[in-house]
Design a protein around this nucleic acid. Structure first.
Length: 934
RNA sequence: GCUCAGAUGGUGGAACUGGUAGACACGCAGGACUUAAAAUCCUGUUCCCGUAAACGGAGUGCGGGUUCGAUUCCCGCUCUGAGUACCA
């Protein structure tokens, strides 16, 4: 029979599902291997052809590892809480659970068609109560923990309480809020329960505090920093503003250093690690306290008598000529003198009006206002004016900087603009036109530092500041604690109720705290989140928390649930975690670099601190698959003399001769840039009687690479490809497209080649009448050579994730075997095993036709490479003169270098090239090349 | 601005530690089969000169360098893509 991909693929997909072929074993003598994909959010649009790219790669790898004798865990699930289902619910009233279930069904059908070897018995859905029970449980563990810096680990809050009871707050080195109390053991015991709980909240790893959040009025919710792009929400593109709110936060900053250090221990793409490093943003410097000049400030309002700054160049402290604080800085009202009040107020109003975008666009304009107050340089008591300016950010460091105009360009521009002094502090500094941030040279104008270099100077100045209590070395991180609440419906309820204004965990036995039904998915009239509408949803002791968890909650631990997906007692059993440990290979997009991938590492480290998991890092190796972009096609509509569009279309090569305007055309009616005119006439009714100006009898379309989207008519659906060519072709073609990690436009132009290859492979097993026919003869030398070449090549390629080159090699091997007219059973059976990770359906079929037990292919052994079959006794040496190849010469590989040289020089053709002259030098590299210099 | 990745035929791409640049595939051109088309098969296909072949020349973004030999290593530049940004 000819290659009937439809029947074959359906048959085997059914077989795998019925027989649980890919079920991973929890106990096995085989070594484990865990291959994970980033699970999808099941959107209503279904999968387009770009989505499966990573899944295909990981599936090939998983199948390959099974053949190599590993017990492979390769699961799939859905990140099914999220905004789109809720937006849809607001518009239609349909419960997000229903939308989500529908979408999941579509995804599942589409995924099944591609023939993935997922162990579906372990499927997880983050929106299922069986799952989010454990998300809530982990939240409770975070609530019950604090970070002990002395042992650099999270510990139970009970331990902290015990310490407070015995020794008070002395000796505690914790990551906490800034305003913590100092108390003795007796004072602690004298606190009311209320006071104690309020104090403990400042230590908990998940805590409640008023913070400035990214509020999106259009979405009615708070967004994380990584969900905001350029002042607009990533989803929907709505404006985002800053707002102060009581919010749940996660103390991820406690793990900043470990998150940074851990990057050196994992095999991830360097750009991705770099993004996390930048996001964590560690900078080493010093914090310095500048005492406020007593006479000038409004002493009634003052809360402390100094301004603290963070600087990475504390060595430049003698160059400070102005202290600049953020307009939002808490001391601004106190520092403003009556004479300057009008200026300051005007400036603050002006700043508030500017959106974040304006502020960025305005980066070059210098602006600011003088408060009228001064600080003193702690090292020489010089009076330094205090200004406010919006180039200083309230959210970074302390919201105040010591400006050194000679060393920092922004400070330089500021000083120039407002005529403030600029003091050079390094002998080789050139500050005529701009700041010079050099660290070379010796200090001048710097008191006791004069003559020292950067290293010695920094040490000296920090020592001095510490001695007088005005500063100390400090490490600062850019990363902020992560906001953990959303004012939305479709997320995990926070397992907390409020009593007397303080949060309390619900009892563990009452987990999961189920998401209640509501009449509408909108905020209440009083502005409470949608959960405020749930009737009778109340804890006996108080009101439940009304926000839900953010999208990243459920995805921050899901890889553990796959290890033991149905456990009712634990998020995963100790035994399962001890066996599967961590993810060996994780494939997904780089867009999660500073979101999911950072939060997951954070939760993992936390779970490790509690000895609930065994590895410090969750994902040993990570690969980013590239984005598949859309490839849009255009037709060119003729414009008439009045400037109106006509119903005539001009082929691409002729548009220079006419006046035309481009128009997106559905890529599914264009093949190799040639428009299918009949289908085009049916594309839209207005084109029914369209006319065409053709070239060579064809209409050629224009091409552009854009994002894949419905409005651009460039979405290619895997279902269409599969019904035309089959899943095996789709799988191989997606790999053939180019290197996995590279972004590339989708282009169906070459798919025929892959389809032809599979037919050619099928034909090796069949005679001219399409009857199955293989020979049991001894394989020939040439056949064995082809086979072992491909064995080695595929092993090398798969191990370095170079799937595109192995597809080429398969083509070469099949071309060679076709030329050899090979139908040798031994050879072809091994070929089937090697190809099966890429094209599993056709291989299963041929495997059974060869007489093997159905379904046993997935656990067959990958053929062993034997180099003996590849040994050659001759090599066609390229003979080059001055590096230019002139001819090839067959020479025995057993010859020594000297003999090769003699053999080459004795050759008549070589002599012709040399024109009778002796070469100056002859380079012979055995098995590679002969080069002569003349 | 900063950080990172990349630039190879008409197209997607290959060349793993410096050793025959353009594998494999698409497209295109010519041919076979066919009443015809589709499908299939064969041949050619980096560019330039040349009727074809032989022969010759150029050639991996640009300009230099190291080397017997550079797509690969080094220096400088241009362009493209991604991330990030008054981060003190």
């Amino acid at each position: 029979m000819d290659y009937q991909f439809k029947d074959i693929e359906q048959k085997w997909q059914q077989f795998w599902a019925d027989n649980g072929t890919f079920k991973a074993e929890d106990k096995s003598a085989k070594p484990k291997y865990y291959v994970l994909d980033m699970f999808p959010y099941p959107s209503g649009a279904g999968l387009h052809v770009g989505h499966p790219l990573g899944y295909i790669a990981s599936d090939i790898f998983a199948r390959y590892k099974r053949l190599k004798g590993f017990n492979v865990l390769h699961p799939m699930g859905y990140d099914s809480f999220g905004l789109p289902a809720e937006q849809y619910a607001i518009q239609t009233g349909q419960h997000p659970a229903i939308t989500t279930a529908d979408n999941i069904a579509t995804y599942r059908r589409q995924l099944d068609q591609i023939g993935f070897s997922f162990d579906w018995s372990r499927e997880v859905r983050t929106s299922s109560p069986d799952y989010y029970k454990w998300t809530q449980w982990i939240f409770m563990q975070l609530f019950n923990s604090w970070y002990n810096k002395d042992i650099d680990k999270a510990e139970s809050i009970a331990k902290l309480v015990a310490h407070f009871e015995q020794k008070g707050s002395a000796g505690i080195n914790a990551v906490s809020d800034e305003e913590i109390l100092s108390f003795t053991a007796d004072e602690w015991k004298a606190f009311t329960n209320q006071e104690q709980q309020s104090e403990l909240l400042k230590y908990r790893l998940t805590y409640l505090r008023e913070s400035t959040v990214n509020w999106c009025p259009a979405l009615g919710t708070v967004l994380a920093n990584d969900e905001v792009k350029d002042g607009f929400s990533e989803r929907g593109g709505y404006p985002v503003e800053q707002k102060k709110m009581m919010q749940w936060s996660m103390r991820i900053t406690a793990y900043a250093e470990r998150l940074l250090q851990g990057l050196d221990t994992i095999d991830w793409p360097e750009p991705l690690k770099e993004m996390q490093r930048n996001w964590i943003g560690k900078s080493t410097g010093a914090s310095v306290r500048f005492p406020i000049e007593k006479d000038t400030h409004n002493s009634q309002l003052i809360t402390h008598n100094f301004i603290e700054v963070f600087t990475t160049r504390v060595d430049t402290i003698f160059g400070v000529t102005v202290l600049v604080v953020a307009p939002e800085h808490e001391l601004v009202p106190a520092l403003t003198t009556p004479e300057q009040k009008a200026d300051i107020d005007a400036y603050i109003t002006q700043t508030k009006k500017k959106s974040e975008l304006d502020r960025m666009a305005d980066a070059k304009t210098v602006s600011g206002a003088f408060t009228g107050s001064y600080v003193l340089n702690p090292l020489n008591n010089e009076k330094i004016p205090i200004w406010i300016a919006d180039y200083v950010l309230a959210g970074y460091g302390t919201g105040a900087v010591m400006a050194v105009p000679s060393g920092d360009q922004r400070d330089y521009l500021f000083a120039k603009h407002y005529n403030l002094p600029i003091i050079p502090i390094i002998d080789i500094q050139n500050i005529e036109t701009e700041a010079d941030p050099t660290k070379e040279g010796k200090y001048i104008n710097s008191d006791f530092m004069n003559g020292l270099d950067y290293k010695a100077g920094t040490v000296a100045v920090i020592a001095k500041l510490e001695a007088i209590g005005a500063g100390k070395a400090k490490v600062n991180f850019r990363m902020r604690d992560a906001i953990f609440g959303r004012q939305r419906y479709w997320g995990e309820p926070v397992p907390v109720y409020f009593k007397d204004g303080l949060p309390h965990l619900i009892e563990e036995k009452h987990l999961p705290l189920l998401l209640p039904d509501v009449d509408k998915y909108l905020p209440t009239e009083s502005g409470e989140p949608p959960l405020g509408r749930a009737e009778g949803w109340k804890h006996p002791e108080g009101e439940y928390e009304l926000s839900t968890m953010p999208g990243w909650a459920g995805s921050s631990w899901y890889w553990y649930r796959y290890m033991d997906a149905h456990n009712k007692k634990e998020f995963a059993s100790k035994e399962a975690i001890a066996y599967w440990k961590d993810v060996d290979l994780y494939i997904g997009g780089s867009e999660h670099a500073t979101g999911h991938l950072l939060y997951s590492r954070f939760w993992n480290k936390f779970l490790k601190d509690l000895d609930l998991v065994v590895e410090e890092e969750p994902f040993k190796k990570l690969i980013n698959q590239g984005m598949i972009q859309g490839r849009s096609n255009f037709v060119y509509r003729l414009i008439d003399d009045d400037g109106r569009g006509t119903n005539t279309f001009v082929s691409l090569g002729l548009i220079k001769e006419y006046k035309t305007s481009p128009l997106h055309v559905d890529v599914n009616i264009v093949e190799n840039e040639i428009l299918n005119i009949e289908k085009f006439r049916k594309f839209r009714t207005e084109f029914e009687d369209a006319e065409f100006i053709l070239e060579n009898g064809k209409y050629i379309c224009g091409v552009e690479v854009e994002k894949m989207s419905k409005s651009k008519f460039n979405v290619v659906n895997p279902d269409d490809i599969i019904s035309r060519y089959g899943a095996d072709t789709l799988r191989m073609y997606e790999m053939f497209l180019g290197p996995l990690e590279q972004s590339k436009p989708w282009n169906t132009n070459g798919i025929e080649g892959v389809f032809k290859f599979l037919r050619k492979f099928w034909r090796l097993f069949h005679n001219d009448a399409w009857e199955f026919s293989v020979s049991d003869a001894e394989p020939s030398k040439a056949e064995l050579k082809s086979l072992h070449k491909i064995i080695r090549k595929v092993e090398e390629d798969v191990e370095r994730f170079s799937f595109n080159t192995s597809v080429s090699s398969f083509m070469i091997a099949v071309n060679e075997l076709t030329d050899l007219k090979s139908n040798n059973r031994a050879i072809l059976q091994d070929m089937v095993i090697i190809l099966s990770p890429y094209a599993p359906h056709i291989c299963e079929e041929l495997w059974t036709l060869l007489g093997n037990q159905a379904g046993s292919l997935s656990y067959a052994s990958f053929p062993k490479f034997n180099g003996a079959y590849l040994i050659e006794d001759e090599f066609a040496y390229p003979i080059s003169i001055n590096g230019k190849t002139k001819m090839n010469l067959n020479i025995s590989l057993s010859l020594e270098l000297k003999d090769i040289e003699a053999f080459v020089l004795a050759n008549a053709d070589v002599q012709k090239y040399l024109d009778g002259k002796a070469p100056k030098k002859v380079i012979v590299v055995k098995g590679r090349i002969v080069n002569m210099v003349v």
